[in-house]
Amino acid sequence: AQVHVDGVTYDFDNPEEAEKFAREMAKRKGGTVEVKNDQWHVE
């Protein structure tokens, strides 16, 4: 699973880890999390 944050792509073998990371980053940035094509996007 991939997580996109500020133009940087992070690869995770485990989708749950990807989701956890995406939500944590969004919380830190005060942003939102979107899922597109099985990829997490932190805005």
Rank of each mutant, 00 (worst) to 15 (best):
A1R: 13
A1H: 14
Q2N: 04
Q2W: 08
Q2L: 10
Q2M: 08
Q2I: 09
V3E: 01
V3R: 00
V3Y: 00
V3T: 02
V3W: 00
V3F: 02
H4N: 09
V5M: 12
V5Q: 01
V5W: 08
V5H: 07
V5F: 12
V5Y: 12
V5I: 13
V5C: 15
D6K: 03
D6N: 12
D6S: 07
D6E: 07
D6F: 10
D6I: 02
D6R: 03
G7Q: 03
V8N: 07
V8T: 10
V8C: 15
V8A: 08
V8G: 02
V8M: 11
V8I: 12
T9V: 15
T9W: 13
T9R: 11
Y10E: 01
Y10V: 04
Y10K: 02
Y10I: 06
Y10G: 01
Y10R: 03
Y10L: 04
D11K: 12
D11M: 14
D11E: 13
F12H: 00
F12L: 07
F12N: 00
F12K: 00
F12E: 01
F12P: 01
F12W: 00
F12V: 00
D13K: 07
D13M: 08
D13E: 11
D13H: 04
D13N: 09
N14S: 14
N14R: 03
N14W: 03
N14A: 05
N14H: 05
N14V: 03
N14F: 04
P15A: 13
P15E: 11
P15T: 10
E16N: 06
E16L: 08
E16V: 10
E16F: 10
E17K: 02
E17T: 04
E17P: 00
A18H: 00
A18R: 01
A18F: 01
E19R: 01
E19L: 07
K20A: 13
K20P: 00
K20G: 03
K20N: 11
F21S: 02
F21A: 04
F21Q: 03
F21E: 00
F21W: 07
F21V: 03
F21P: 00
F21R: 03
A22H: 02
A22V: 05
A22N: 02
A22Q: 04
A22L: 11
A22C: 13
A22E: 09
A22S: 01
A22K: 06
R23S: 08
R23I: 12
R23C: 15
R23V: 09
R23W: 12
R23G: 09
E24W: 02
E24P: 00
E24D: 10
E24G: 02
M25A: 08
M25F: 02
M25I: 12
A26Y: 00
A26G: 05
A26R: 03
A26Q: 07
A26M: 03
K27E: 13
K27W: 02
K27S: 12
K27Q: 12
K27A: 13
R28H: 11
R28G: 09
R28F: 07
K29E: 10
G30N: 10
G30Y: 07
G30D: 08
G31F: 09
G31Y: 12
G31D: 06
G31R: 08
G31P: 03
T32G: 07
T32P: 05
T32D: 06
T32F: 11
T32L: 09
V33F: 05
V33D: 05
V33L: 09
V33Q: 04
V33W: 01
V33T: 06
E34T: 15
E34M: 14
E34H: 15
V35T: 07
V35H: 12
V35F: 15
V35E: 06
V35P: 04
K36E: 10
K36W: 13
K36H: 13
K36A: 09
K36M: 10
K36F: 13
K36V: 13
K36Q: 11
K36N: 10
N37A: 08
N37L: 10
D38T: 08
D38E: 10
D38K: 10
D38S: 11
D38C: 15
Q39E: 09
Q39W: 06
Q39N: 10
Q39T: 10
Q39H: 11
W40K: 05
W40E: 06
W40F: 13
W40G: 03
W40Q: 07
H41E: 08
H41P: 05
V42N: 06
V42W: 05
V42G: 04
V42Y: 06
V42L: 04
V42K: 05
E43R: 15
E43S: 14
E43F: 14
